[in-house]
Structures are given as structure tokens and as C-alpha cells.
Amino acid sequence: MTRIKLKGFQLFKDRHGRWRCYHRKSRTPIDLTRFPLGSAEFIAECARIVALKEAQTPKEKPGSLGMLICDYRASAAFLDLAPRTQADYQKHFDYLRPIADTPLARLDRPLVVRIRDRAAATKGRRFGNYLKATLSVVFGWGRERGYLADNPASGIKAIRRPKGAPDANRPWSDAERHAVLDAAPAHMLPAIAMMMMTGLGPKDALSLPRSHWRDGEIGTKRAKTGEPVFWPVPAPLDAILRAAPRHDAVTLCASSTGRPWTLDGFRASWRTLRMRLEADGAIGPGLTLYGLRHTVAVILREAGCDERTIADALGQKTIEMARRYARGADLRPKMRGVVASFDAELNKRRTKLVKLD
């Protein structure tokens, strides 16, 4: 069979040794039995798929919001982002599709605020705030390249969380952590313990290669930020990992079938476990897997770690997110020691004053 390379198409052999061909952007497969590879029929089918894709691709108006987004998506600034961040941005671009024809000259701060507020009203406060942040990134990129004279999303504050509203990813209590560890099935326990005792997010924990656990230590990079994460494995986690069911998956954690977990698959299994424990009264409502990152931050903060150390432990570039994650830490034990030292220092100084008099 003749091998040819066509731009925009992926050609490979599957695990059965059969040739497969896909259009990369649309993931449209080509039936190589009907259109033999390298034949005139094959070339014609490739041209048809490309033409169909181009016909389905909306044409953006010059000087419009849609054109700016289209150009930004094709730039290195977007393509260098982590896949998760690209997917999050794309959700916002899809939301903005109905107003893609809006001229850039019409975009000002009041209009951006209205876009943010409408998104928050229909899809939630977090989505609205994140949409505003995404627009700020895109407008900033466009401003540097002459698309706009100003960044109309710059300086707009995020919508504040209503007072009394529960945190989206609250830290787990000690009792909740122990209850989940005691009730988790053997094939789920390593992944949950990994998130609980290293601060890795669900995606990073589930995709961690087996080779990244070595000599009692875990070394990896966060998928979202690319920041390195290094953890000497705590003894309880080490014991759980060594006692985990054997499997041949390349990842450290695996499902009951011995295959790498998918994020959706693990979340479905976690939901079943969480609902059962909630019904039994073993855990409170609102427990999330991502809340375990907040839990680790809170524990480190209560242990006296500074914000830079917490940021390094969680793989954060800046301390702002570490500060947010550690919010709610119980600082009373630490502050009792601080005030005791402060009181002793005051007494020492008072004694010196008395001697001078």
C-alpha cells in the first residue's frame, strides 16, 4: 500500500495492524475500503472533506469580535496553553458566538460588564467572572497587535460571591477524610489518597504515570500550569499505593478493569460513593474532589507554612491562588504561640524600662 502524507489528515495503523485515516480538525474518518489509500478516489474524498469543513467554518467579519477570537485561537499564545485551559477558553468562545459580529469599535467597559452579568445570570457567577477574564486576555493580545486601542475588559472587577454562599470546593474535615478513605473501594482508594495527601488535582492524579512514583517520591508537572510538583510520599499514602490491586496500566492508578481511569469515569464512581456516604451521614454536603487541593493548602497553612511554600507544594506560579486555597485555615494554635512570644517580648521590654528608671 502506498503511503502518502496529506496536510490536515492523520494516517496510522491501529492495534490490529489496519490502516486508519482521519481528518484532524473534524475527526472525520475515511473508509479505506471504499477509498483505497493513494487512489484517485481517496484524493477526491480528502478534498470533499476539506471543502465541507471550510463551508461549515463561519466567516468572520473584519474588525469584529469573532475575527479577533479566530486570530487569537490560531496564535501561539493560545496554542501554547494547557489543553484544559484551551478547552475552558473554547467554552467562552462558543458562548460569545451569537455576538461574534459585534464591531470591536463598539466594545467598551459597560458593554463588557453587561456581557459578564448576563453570562453570570444564565450560567453562574463563576462562569461570568471567568468569561470576563478570558475576554481580558484576548483583548490584551489584540491591543498589542493593533486590533484595539484599549483593553475594554481591563479594570473590571469580578462579581463578588454572595455573603453566606458556600465555597465551591470547600476543604474536607478530618472526619470526612477518614470516612471516605475507610469506605472507598480498593480500586478507587489510591487515586483518592493521592489527591488527599499530595494536593494533585483529579486530572493530574489520575494521569500520573507509574514511573513518576519512585523511591518513595512523586515528581510530576501540573497539566494546567506546567509547574513542577515534588512530593516525598507520606507514609499512609505509600502504604495505600503498595497495597493497591495489581494492574498493567501505565498510570499509577487504575480502574477495576485494570485500565487507566478517565476523568468522567472516576467522577461517576466518586458520585456514587459520595451520595452513599451523604445518605449515611458520614460526610457533609458539598464535598468535591477538587476540594482536596484546598484541604492540603489548609493543613499546610495550619502547620505554619508560608504562602510561597504552599504555592510550590500545589504547583502554583503565584501565591494568590495559594492564599485563596488556604482560606479558612484554623490559625488559633499558631497565633496562641505568636501572642505568647509577643507577650514575653513585651514583658522583657517592660522590665528593661523599670531598670532604667
Results as ranks from 00 to 15, higher is better:
residue 219 G to H: 10
residue 9 F to G: 12
residue 44 A to P: 06
residue 184 A to E: 06
residue 258 G to V: 09
residue 188 M to N: 01
residue 235 A to L: 11
residue 14 D to R: 02
residue 81 L to H: 12
residue 136 S to P: 06
residue 128 G to Q: 02
residue 13 K to F: 13
residue 149 A to T: 11
residue 154 S to N: 10
residue 179 A to F: 08
residue 18 R to A: 12
residue 178 H to W: 09
residue 117 D to S: 12
residue 163 K to P: 06
residue 248 D to Y: 02
residue 332 R to N: 12
residue 41 E to L: 14
residue 238 D to F: 03
residue 295 T to R: 02
residue 64 S to F: 10
residue 88 D to K: 13
residue 262 T to L: 09
residue 348 K to W: 03
residue 300 L to H: 12
residue 89 Y to N: 10
residue 239 A to F: 04
residue 163 K to D: 14
residue 71 D to S: 13
residue 45 E to T: 04
residue 25 K to V: 14
residue 352 K to W: 09
residue 10 Q to Y: 12
residue 18 R to G: 01
residue 186 A to S: 10
residue 71 D to A: 13
residue 44 A to I: 00
residue 291 G to L: 08
residue 304 G to T: 06
residue 272 T to K: 15
residue 304 G to E: 11
residue 190 P to H: 09
residue 194 M to V: 07
residue 284 G to E: 11
residue 337 G to I: 07
residue 241 L to Q: 06
residue 340 A to V: 10
residue 254 A to S: 04
residue 36 P to A: 11
residue 281 G to V: 03
residue 128 G to C: 07
residue 239 A to E: 14
residue 152 P to I: 03
residue 351 T to A: 15
residue 322 A to M: 06
residue 77 A to T: 13
residue 199 G to K: 01
residue 79 L to P: 00
residue 73 R to M: 15
residue 186 A to E: 09
residue 105 A to M: 04
residue 2 T to W: 13
residue 187 H to V: 04
residue 240 I to R: 11
residue 310 I to D: 02
residue 96 L to H: 10
residue 293 R to M: 09
residue 202 P to I: 07
residue 54 E to D: 15
residue 318 T to P: 01
residue 145 R to Q: 03
residue 131 L to C: 05
residue 339 V to M: 15
residue 165 A to N: 12
residue 244 A to Y: 09
residue 350 R to V: 14
residue 48 R to M: 05
residue 304 G to W: 01
residue 196 M to T: 14
residue 198 T to F: 00
residue 269 S to G: 10
residue 89 Y to H: 15
residue 331 L to F: 05
residue 279 A to W: 00
residue 334 K to T: 11
residue 82 A to M: 09
residue 258 G to T: 08
residue 291 G to C: 08
residue 32 L to D: 08
residue 322 A to G: 05
residue 119 A to L: 08
residue 208 L to G: 04
residue 279 A to Y: 00
residue 288 T to K: 03
residue 65 L to Y: 07
residue 263 L to T: 10
residue 94 D to K: 12
residue 190 P to K: 07
residue 79 L to R: 13
residue 161 R to V: 09
residue 315 G to P: 06
residue 181 L to P: 04
residue 323 R to Y: 07
residue 31 D to A: 07
residue 263 L to F: 07
residue 154 S to K: 12
residue 335 M to P: 02
residue 36 P to R: 05
residue 155 G to S: 10
residue 26 S to E: 08
residue 208 L to S: 06
residue 249 A to Q: 03
residue 214 R to W: 01
residue 246 R to L: 13
residue 244 A to H: 05
residue 230 F to I: 08
residue 205 A to L: 03
residue 62 P to C: 04
residue 198 T to H: 01
residue 344 A to H: 10
residue 190 P to S: 11
residue 36 P to V: 08
residue 149 A to E: 13
residue 207 S to G: 08
residue 168 A to C: 02
residue 352 K to A: 15
residue 75 S to T: 05
residue 112 V to I: 15
residue 7 K to S: 14
residue 136 S to W: 02
residue 245 P to V: 03
residue 152 P to G: 11
